[in-house]
Simulated assay, not measured.
Amino acid sequence: MDTAVQTLHIDVVSDVVCPWCFIGQKRLDRAIAAVPEVDVEIHWRPFQLDPTIPLEGRDRKEYMLSKFGSVEKLHEIHARIESLGAAEGIDFDFDAITVSPNTLDAHRVLRWAAANGAQVQGRLARRLFQLYFEEGKNIGDHAVLIEAAREAGIDAPVVEAMLATDADRDEVLDEAATASRMGITGVPCFLFESKYAVMGAQDTDTLADAIRQIAAAKARGELETAR
Rank of each mutant, 00 (worst) to 15 (best):
D209L: 14
D174K: 13
A143N: 13
A177G: 08
K195L: 11
E175M: 08
G183T: 09
T98Y: 06
Q130H: 15
D141F: 01
F133S: 08
G140R: 05
I184K: 08
E222A: 02
A216I: 01
A143F: 07
M162T: 10
I146G: 03
M182L: 15
Q130K: 15
R181D: 12
P101I: 05
L191T: 04
E151Q: 15
T178G: 12
M199I: 12
G140D: 03
T185I: 10
K218A: 10
R123T: 04
T103F: 06
T206H: 12
D203F: 02
D91Y: 00
A149E: 04
A143C: 02
M162N: 14
R111P: 01
S194D: 15
D170F: 03
R169L: 02
N116T: 03
A216T: 11
Q119P: 00
E160H: 11
A114F: 13
D168P: 03
V144S: 08
A208T: 08
N138F: 02
Y132P: 01
I211G: 04
Y196L: 13
T185S: 15
A167E: 06
G186A: 15
E193M: 01
R220N: 14
F133D: 09
S194T: 12
L124S: 07
I90D: 01
A156M: 03
R108F: 06
A152R: 07
T204C: 02
A197H: 04
T103P: 02
V159Y: 02
D166A: 07
A164V: 09
A210D: 07
Q213E: 14
D91C: 03
I146N: 05
Y132K: 03
E151G: 00
V159Q: 05
Q130Y: 14
F192I: 09
A115L: 06
A152W: 10
A176N: 08
T185M: 14
A149G: 06
T165W: 05
A96M: 00
A179E: 09
K137F: 06
